Amino acid sequence: MQLPAPRGPLTAELFERLRRPPHAFEPPPVPAGGPVTEDEDLQLALFACYELHYRGFDEVGQEWEWEPSLLAARKALERRFEDGLARIVPRPPAVAGVPTRRALAELVAADEGPRLSAFLARRADLGQFREFVTHRSIYHLKEADPHTWAIPRLGGAPKAALVEIQADEYGGGRVERMHSELFRATMRGLGLDDSYGAHLERIPAITLAISNLMSLFGLHRRHLGALLGHLAAFEMTSSAPNHRYSQGLRRLGGDDVARRFYDEHVQADAVHEQIAAHDMCGGFVAQHPSRAGEVLYGAACALTLDRLFAEHVMDRWSRAASSLREADLLAASR
């Protein structure tokens, strides 16, 4: 993957430095502004910092991953992101005596975001479905990786539960069954480039924020409870929407191979949601009762950002506009 074009002063300075050998530098100031989920410069800068812990960029030296100056810059970006999240995601109260599984279920049931999956099932045209898949590629081509950071930080029943979920995500050791590979087949079926990071230039801030949230939680041990809650919400809101996505793709002519990614999640996530809520999160809170609120906050963050993403997409489509970054914006950023 190549470094994308900058989207503002933060990414302009950061990318200029990353193309050079690792060196010490003063972290650039991170300006306060509007909603963090709409800040293109902030989200792309944070995404680039996080990506160095995954597969990196072709022109960025691997030594940058743990360069203290870059970590200091990332810390400033994260502080701005976390402050912004705190403004838009109320912390759900952890009520004594309420089982974690029930508290998570109530949180999911209370979410009233727009029904993007219903639109994709019944009304979306092929171009809109391709846009949706392009958005999702930024996560699904590395599916499960951010949550895997939790495995060495857990013990006992919660660890076993997470390993069970992740083993399915990675195809039980069979490459053709890995969920990231199934998603590649969906992309190819829609005529999209399925290479890792191919669509980063067109991915807007809200979609980057969803990915950055997982990396933020995954890379910090202090956010372990939030990471588990995030995964639980992810699994608990997956099965029915994926059924609708498969219906929509079938309506648009998608074959069994292209739809397999969605069909697989209908079955797998119906099981995963029980494991995630009861065994993983419930087991974690049983071991660490004081951290129940963290679990619920992670779930609330996942639900909120997914709602904001759906609102962004539906708003753009209602105005017959692209939900991706369009050609004029890309040209202006270069």
Rank of each mutant, 00 (worst) to 15 (best):
2 Q>N: 12
5 A>C: 02
6 P>I: 06
9 P>L: 06
12 A>D: 10
13 E>P: 01
13 E>H: 14
15 F>Q: 07
19 R>V: 05
22 P>T: 10
26 E>Y: 03
30 V>G: 08
36 V>R: 10
38 E>N: 00
39 D>K: 07
42 L>F: 00
42 L>H: 06
45 A>I: 04
46 L>V: 04
46 L>G: 01
49 C>M: 02
49 C>N: 11
49 C>Q: 01
55 R>Q: 09
56 G>D: 08
58 D>R: 05
60 V>C: 11
61 G>Y: 04
68 P>F: 08
69 S>Y: 04
69 S>A: 15
72 A>F: 07
72 A>N: 05
72 A>K: 15
75 K>Y: 04
75 K>N: 14
76 A>K: 12
81 F>Y: 13
82 E>K: 05
83 D>M: 03
83 D>P: 02
88 I>Q: 06
88 I>D: 09
98 V>T: 12
108 V>L: 02
109 A>V: 00
127 G>P: 07
135 H>Y: 08
137 S>H: 11
140 H>A: 01
144 A>R: 14
146 P>L: 14
147 H>P: 04
150 A>L: 03
163 V>E: 11
167 A>L: 12
174 R>K: 07
180 S>K: 15
182 L>F: 01
187 M>T: 06
189 G>F: 11
189 G>K: 09
194 D>S: 09
194 D>P: 12
200 L>N: 01
201 E>V: 00
202 R>S: 05
205 A>G: 07
206 I>M: 10
209 A>E: 08
217 F>H: 15
218 G>D: 09
223 H>K: 10
236 M>H: 05
237 T>H: 01
240 A>I: 12
240 A>G: 15
253 G>Q: 04
253 G>F: 12
257 V>Y: 04
258 A>G: 09
259 R>G: 13
263 D>E: 15
264 E>D: 13
265 H>Y: 05
267 Q>N: 10
268 A>G: 10
270 A>S: 14
272 H>R: 03
276 A>R: 13
285 V>N: 00
291 R>T: 05
292 A>I: 04
296 L>E: 01
298 G>Y: 09
310 A>E: 07
315 D>Q: 05
321 A>R: 15
321 A>I: 13
324 L>A: 14
327 A>C: 07
328 D>M: 11
